[in-house]
């Protein structure tokens, strides 16, 4: 499983450009705020259309401006964990987890809830969750959608030290036990050095 990304996109006055070719494991996109890290994730996920470039994941071409390929978001099977969790406010935790669930997935809802330590939250509403809990539910929701790869955008933002540690352990277990390739965005060097096998500076 590999990522082959070379994308370019003008956003206002700046141009976000990024190119890398990496294998599996956890790869960090590292750089200061405003460097366009999130935009790169959005382009890999299909939420933002590059002006030019190519996105190939695991040998499958998801976007190629020269070849006219643009696989729609729904078909890319990106497990995207957003910085702001983005849980659906009108659905309970269980329904959020089940939203994109596929029968042939990596794990069942109960297994995912156990793995992430959120089994006791299944009947709660998203607005009643703490930041760390919401992030873990968000990770679970992405995992259950049977993704081919994970995109994580600063999943530790807004968490206190103890909660950060909880989520960091979950991410390490994901990296080591589940084996999905992860593209991980952060501006925190210590975090990136602890988690990432490859670091791409932006």
């Amino acid at each position: 499983m590999s990522f082959e990304v070379a994308v370019e996109r003008r956003l206002g006055d700046t141009v976000v450009a990024c190119a890398f070719h990496i294998g599996g494991g956890l790869t960090a996109l590292f750089g200061p705020s405003g460097a366009g890290k999130t935009s790169v994730l959005n382009m890999v996920a299909g939420l933002l259309r590059p002006d030019a470039g190519r996105v190939v994941v695991g040998g499958e071409v998801l976007f190629d401006s020269a070849g006219g390929v643009d696989v729609p978001v729904q078909a890319r099977r990106a497990g995207y964990v957003f910085q702001d969790a983005r849980l659906f406010p009108h659905l309970r935790v269980r329904e959020n987890l089940a939203y994109g669930m596929k029968p042939e997935g990596l794990m069942t809802l109960e297994e995912a809830a156990e793995f992430l330590g959120i089994a006791h939250l299944l009947n709660r509403w998203p607005r009643s969750l703490s930041g760390g809990e919401a992030h873990r539910v968000s990770i679970g929701r992405a995992l259950l959608s049977n993704p081919r790869f994970l995109l994580m955008d600063e999943p530790l933002t807004g968490l206190d030290r103890a909660r950060r540690e909880d989520v960091l352990r979950v991410i390490e277990r994901l990296r080591d036990e589940v084996g999905l390739p992860i593209l991980y965005v952060s501006h925190d060097r210590a975090e990136v050095e602890r988690l990432a096998g490859t670091i791409i500076e932006m």
Partner: peptide, 8 residues
């Protein structure tokens, strides 16, 4: 957008 990344 989140729902779309989940395959909807």
């Amino acid at each position: 957008a989140a729902a779309m990344t989940l395959g909807a």
